[in-house]
Design a protein around this nucleic acid. Structure first.
Lengths: 346, 346
DNA sequence: TGTCAACACGAAAACGTTTTCGCCAAGAAT
DNA sequence: ATTCTTGGCGAAAACGTTTTCGTGTTGACA
């Protein structure tokens, strides 16, 4: 087992100074052709690679991006990560991952662990609990210490930083409009409690679409799911709620859900109740994941372009990190959503 | 914007030496109660945190684990990551992610990027291309340089390191036996080309089950899919192949697929051909993902316990990193699979 | 009064780089 | 023969820690 070799060892072996070795390896003009070749040959032989940590310390840059997301077993977030990793790697950066698990405390701890020199900047999407408590001091402090942050998807407006979002309102409005122009008269929405920003915005889009079509919203058709109760394994309560929705409103002929899973479950409930999809009732979900594509019938969804969000976010962050000027000006990139039409709509 | 504060700055402000500050903060007995309190108060005020990079350089440990996986938009791999992150964090480690994208070159480059001091050890699952080329020099070199590796799921036997796997043969054998005891007479298998180790093993399990039931395997019932051709968006060719399988073998009454997607697609094809599931034909897939649970009918699968694999892998690696003794002895942990019965089987 | 332990603190090395500066010798120019 | 350039190299600082090893001051004790 040969341990990693250092400049010092090369210097000792070749009986020159450390400076000479360093310069020779970096093709400095100061070094004679002779010694340069000698050093380079030796380095190659022993497979020398500069120690990254030492470089980071010296340059006060780690060339590493910290990503904090609420959950990784999730199609959307993993797509974002893929996007981040793609451009980060292309531009010579590594990606280090922290999972908040939707918890405020874990989010804070994770940020502290990484903010002490391990990374150059953050890309993150806020945990539900944080949004609920509305405590954003850790973001502010991080930014104050000079570490840039890019937020994506779940953002909060009064933090001053780069952001990558989709136009949730527009995306939902489009989707619901689609249902309405397809002839639906009574479109229900399955959404989350208001504290999750995106749920709120998507509900707004729903309402705007109704307004466009001169329909007065019916609060009975707005189902706000308490997603505390809906874990991966606890879907029964969700099914019950949706069953209730259908039961109390026999005339529902369209459903818009603010995420993929809700839509899939709703379709399942409807099917069990004997409703024909898409003839009697049509469905559209938000977020285009694997489920939508392979469900029966396949689900029409609003594609969020997760990978592109990741790419843009990483681009913004690295641009910021490598920018010379000190002037702080923050950008918000809005990614266009796309309605992917499948068989759950006419 | 107040930049991060260092020991040196504290020392200057308080007019003591750097050593004193360091010791005071670590509650050294050498320092008087007076100065200790003074220093600690000042440090708290300015929110001092030791620079991680400097510590890494000094300790020659980064407390960071490198994870290299072929793909992240994948239920199984993201579950493994979640497991890794869970125990890594609990034990004070960070997780840095590299995606090989199933490419040999990217795998090598990623390992080189991380092996230069950025991390203390690797957890990885081998890229398809690497398995195909059977070039494992980068693993051997990494291990030779004293950096421990833990492989999971897709492993290769002649590399000497810790491993976490499932018993693919046993898992498949169980699944196929289930089909056979459920009354299936002609069970087909949809598998991958042989170079991916797990495909091979799962096929072996299939054959063993047949043997147990005194059935001679029919090569027509073994469909080896060239997964080069099956990308996320290119499923038509796969559907065609499966259609061909059903067409040429009208008597198929059971299908075992070596992954979730193949099983879902096969169910879809069967349904389109008018076959009744599970009455006329039964399905079992491998890997328990979201698709299986929400498919119609829901799919019986072999659960690989991805999160547990991640936890065990991280445990092995950290144990190794923190082990005092130099004796190298490598463990292979075999995770038990579990047949999750749903509605695609009787 | 002189010696010694205990106490409180500082200097410096070390981790592995890069880079600035200074130095010496040799050859060129005057 | 003296001065000036220049090529080639080394010393040392710096990044931010921790830790070992002094060192000076104080008080106690003989």
């Amino acid at each position: 087992m040969k341990k990693k070799i250092t400049l010092k060892q090369i210097a000792r072996e070749l009986d020159v100074s450390i400076s000479t070795v360093s310069k020779a390896l970096r093709d400095s003009i100061e070094i004679s052709e002779d010694t340069r070749q000698k050093v380079q040959a030796f380095a190659k032989l022993y497979n020398y690679r500069p120690n990254n940590i030492a470089l980071s310390l010296k340059n006060r840059k780690t060339k590493t991006i910290g990503v904090i997301i609420p959950e990784i077993v999730h199609h959307f977030f993993s797509k974002v990560i893929r996007g981040i990793e793609l451009v980060a790697n292309k531009r010579g950066y590594n990606v280090i991952i922290g999972l908040s698990n939707e918890s405020f405390d874990k989010e804070v701890i994770n940020m502290q662990m990484l903010a002490n020199g391990s990374i150059d900047g953050f890309i993150l999407s806020i945990a539900k609990e944080t949004l609920q408590q509305q405590d954003y001091h850790h973001f502010k402090e991080t930014i104050n210490q000079g570490m840039p942050i890019v937020m994506f998807d779940r953002i909060v407006n009064d933090i001053h930083c780069d952001k990558v979002i989709i136009d949730d309102v527009k995306g939902s409005k489009n989707a619901v409009s689609k249902l309405l122009s397809n002839g639906c008269k009574n479109v229900a929405i399955i959404t989350t409690k208001d504290y999750v920003s995106v749920g709120k915005l998507r509900t707004q889009g729903y309402l705007e679409a109704l307004e466009d079509f001169k329909i007065t919203p019916d609060t009975d058709l707005i189902l706000k799911v308490d997603d505390e109760l809906v874990s991966e394994d606890h879907l029964e309560s969700l099914e019950k709620e949706i069953e209730g929705l259908f039961h109390n409103n026999k005339n529902i002929d369209g459903v818009f859900a603010v995420n993929e899973l809700y839509a899939i479950i709703a379709m399942k409930v409807a099917r069990n109740l004997g409703m024909k999809i898409p003839d009697e009732i049509q469905f559209i979900g938000f977020t285009d994941g694997v489920l939508s594509k392979h469900a029966t019938p396949s689900l029409t969804t609003v594609n969020q372009h997760g990978q592109e969000m990741g790419e843009k976010a990483a681009g913004l962050l690295i641009d910021n990190l490598e920018r010379e000027s000190e002037e702080e000006q923050y950008t918000t990139i809005v990614i266009e959503t796309e309605l992917v039409e499948r068989n759950s709509t006419k």
